[in-house]
Structure formats: structure tokens, C-alpha cells
Nucleic acid binder design. Structure first.
Lengths: 226, 226
DNA sequence: GATTTTCATATTGTCGACAATTTGTATTAT
DNA sequence: ATAATACAAATTGTCGACAATATGAAAATC
């Protein structure tokens, strides 16, 4: 028996998977408010699938943490208070430090060129005034170290965390119109990733993430929706 | 809206949840072989639930990684080759290092006494020649830092990883009759957790885990079941 | 005899209906 | 008027049946 493919989901072959992705997109596009209750009948009708199919997708999104399932009470879109955001960022920091430790010795010209390309894409989006694309591009940039690490569990953890981050960005975007990644914000990141000191890279990660969190936190004073 | 309880699952109130736990127990008890196909009809009949209910539970176990879902092909019990085991252990090491960083300043007399109790429980199980209990007790011991950290994401990650570890122990036990944790294996762990140096604790974690992995790896030469 | 094709069977995917539980409303008692 | 209770409506939980797909065996072809 051979090892399963590195991307367990993304198959999209089955209706449940397509439903999962469509529902996730619906959430990540900002159509729903944090804490909102998702009525199974209503959502199923909206996506034109049966409740059973929708429920399987919802179980999966609950496992990721985008949805919160309460038995007999319903399934709700997650909320994002400062504590949640702090957890997401601190966890993300630890995870990405692990990823760099694992990928460090696997870097080569090809993979580093790939990293550079991801950064260029990000810069393009920012230049073209495409905040949604910029967010996606930044995610893709940060995925680099996880993919290179070849560590399945690590990559899966990141894949699980990512939608929650995207969700925050979507909310942020919706509330304040602007607020994606900044120009040249990843210059030092790229530079250190090309360098010789893993310790410097790890230290910078702390700074990089803390800065991202702070940039992000100062908008969170307004109320957190119901 | 208040924050959801720290233990999202464990509700067991609904049949799906009870089914999930029973199926997990079935797996963790060693009744199934790695890579074995789980026929929905058969398992549903065995657990006396409908397929729809079983499928929701299976989706959840697939998300944890205990099961591997292949669209239209079936759902299979995970396999455990040396690469998998290495990933589990290295990921666990990184996770637990994070946990100790987060919990370090939260230690107090009460929580440290709790840690001591968990170790005593472990020693009791070993003395009483209760390998299954010892495995559970060791897990519980290691859960201490995650719980104390108060970091939801971290704890969830550990809770997701745990069944995979337990599964390995179950297989190990089944194949070689013996092989739970050893007496006094956690003495230094406890000692350092009570100490003043976080760095020493983190260093020891690497050793502690590596030793656990090696103790464990040397039995893996036999074939990996079909 | 080996390979491809066809077809029956088994298994998974999806659905709509019914049962159990919650939630909100109207009623009653104090 | 307020609080407790009973009830009706809405929502989730669970199920069995049918559709779509994969699997394996028999038949046909080379």
C-alpha cells in the first residue's frame, strides 16, 4: 500500500467536498457574521444539497474550528475576540518556527526561487490594489516552509489554521475596508530565509508575527458582532 | 455570548458522539488492523446505528487522522510506518515545547501537586502490571502542560494527536505483548517541571521524546501488517 | 493463453421523511 | 404585573431507501 497523497482533501470529487469548499468560501467571503447561527435547512437549500450532505461538511468545518457545533442547539460561525486572535497568532508562530526547523536543510536553489516567486506575486497584488488576492498570496507565501518541510502533520496543522486566519482577514476587510499585508513587509523574511542563520530566522518570525498581530489588533476595539 | 467550554467534544450526549467514542475505542483497543477497510454497513450494524450517523463519526475520525477517507473507495484505518511514527514524535515534541513555554509562568503549588499525582498514578499502573492503564496515565501526565497553558489551539492539537499515539501503543502492545512506559522514566521530567529553568525543561523534552521514539522504533522492523 | 470487454454485485454517495429536542408564545396561577 | 407552566412551532438528530460508483468475475477477443 502506497502512502496517500499529500493533499488529503481538495479532491472536490464528491458533492460533500464541493459543498465544504463552497460553504467555506461563503464564510471566507464575509457573507456571514461571526457567531451567526447556520440553519441546516436554510443553508442546505441555499447550496442546493441535502441536509445529510451539508451536515458532513459542517462536521469537518467544526473540526477545523471555523464552525462551533453545539448538540441540539445548532452550528454557529466562530467568533473572534482578542483572545482567539492572540491564540491563532501565537500558535501560528510556534508552528512556523517548527516548519523552518524542518525545512532548513532542504532549501535549494529551486525552492528558494519558488519562495521568491510567491513574494513577487504578493507584491503584485498589493501594487494592483487587490487586497483579497494579497491575503491569499501572503498565505501562499507562508505555506512555503510547511510544504518544503515535507512534514505531513505540520502541513495539516497549518491547513487547519489557515481558514481561521483568512476568516479574520475577511472580517477585518469587511469592517474597515482596508488592511491586507503591506509592501515590503516580507523583505526581511525572504532575506533571512535565504541566509545561513536558522536562529536569526526564528527570531525574526517572532517579530514578524507580533507585528502582524499588532497591526491587526488595533482594529479590534469595536464590538465583536453578536 | 460566552466562550464555549474548553472541551468541545466529550459531550457524548448525541448518538453520533457516542458512536465516535465507541468506534475510537474499538480501534484503540486493537480490534482492527492498520490499513483495514471499514465497511460502513458492517460497522454501522456492529454499533447498531444508521450509516448516516456512522459516517459523521467517521468524517471526524478522518479529520483526526485515525482514519483515511478515499472518495468512492472507502474509509481505512490508518497505517503506521516508521515515517509516520517519526512525524508523530517530532510534532509532539514541538507541540509540548510550545505548551511548556505557555504554561511556565502559570505553574503554582496546586498545579504542580496535580502533576505529581499524575505521575504517581502512572507509577501505580506500572507497578500493578497494567500496561493499558499505564499508557493512559502517561498521556494524562503529558496533558498537564497543555491544560495548564490555557491555550485552546494547543490543547486541541494535542487532543487530535493523542489518539494516533494511543493507536500506535495499542498496535505495539498487540504485537509484542509488552512495551508501555518504564518506571521512573518521568522522574527527570517532573523534576525539571518543578525547577526554574525553562531551557533545561525544553532540552530535556527533546531527549525524553527521542528516547520514547527509539524505545518504540526498534520493534517496528517486523512487517507493517496489510 | 493472455488481454480486453461486459456485466452483475457490492459499496459508497445522496436524499427525503420521521423522531427527539429545543425555543418561543400563550396561558394560567400567584 | 410577574413568574411558572403548557403547548405549538421550528430545528436538529437519526434513519432507511435509492442513485452513482467501484470491484471483481465471467465472457469475448486477439
Amino acid at each position: 500500500m502506497t502512502r496517500q497523497a499529500s493533499s488529503p482533501e481538495k479532491s472536490g470529487d464528491t458533492l460533500k467536498d464541493r459543498t465544504l469548499e463552497r460553504l467555506q468560501k461563503l464564510i471566507l467571503t464575509g457573507n456571514l457574521n461571526p457567531g451567526a447561527k447556520l440553519l441546516e435547512t436554510q443553508v442546505a437549500a441555499q447550496l442546493d444539497v441535502s441536509r445529510a450532505t451539508l451536515r458532513e461538511a459542517m462536521v469537518q468545518l467544526s473540526e477545523i474550528g471555523l464552525l462551533v457545533y453545539l448538540p441540539f442547539r445548532g452550528t454557529f460561525l466562530r467568533t473572534l475576540d482578542p483572545v482567539d486572535l492572540d491564540e491563532i497568532y501565537s500558535f501560528r508562530t510556534g508552528l512556523e518556527k517548527m516548519a523552518f526547523q524542518f525545512c532548513w536543510d532542504k532549501r535549494d536553489l529551486i525552492s528558494l526561487a519558488d519562495l521568491q516567486m510567491r513574494n513577487n506575486k504578493l507584491c503584485d497584488c498589493i501594487s494592483n490594489n487587490d487586497p483579497y488576492g494579497a491575503i491569499m498570496a501572503e498565505m501562499h507565501l507562508h505555506s512555503w516552509c510547511y510544504e518544503l518541510s515535507g512534514h505531513t502533520l505540520l502541513l495539516q496543522s497549518w491547513e487547519r489554521l489557515k481558514p481561521n486566519l483568512q476568516f479574520y482577514f475577511a472580517m477585518h476587510q469587511k469592517a474597515h475596508g482596508r488592511g491586507g499585508p503591506l509592501h515590503e513587509s516580507h523583505d526581511k523574511y525572504i532575506q533571512l530565509a535565504n541566509g545561513d542563520s536558522l536562529d536569526d530566522m526564528l527570531d525574526h518570525l517572532e517579530d514578524h508575527m507580533r507585528q502582524g498581530l499588532e497591526n491587526t489588533m488595533k482594529f479590534l476595539d469595536e464590538r465583536n458582532v453578536s
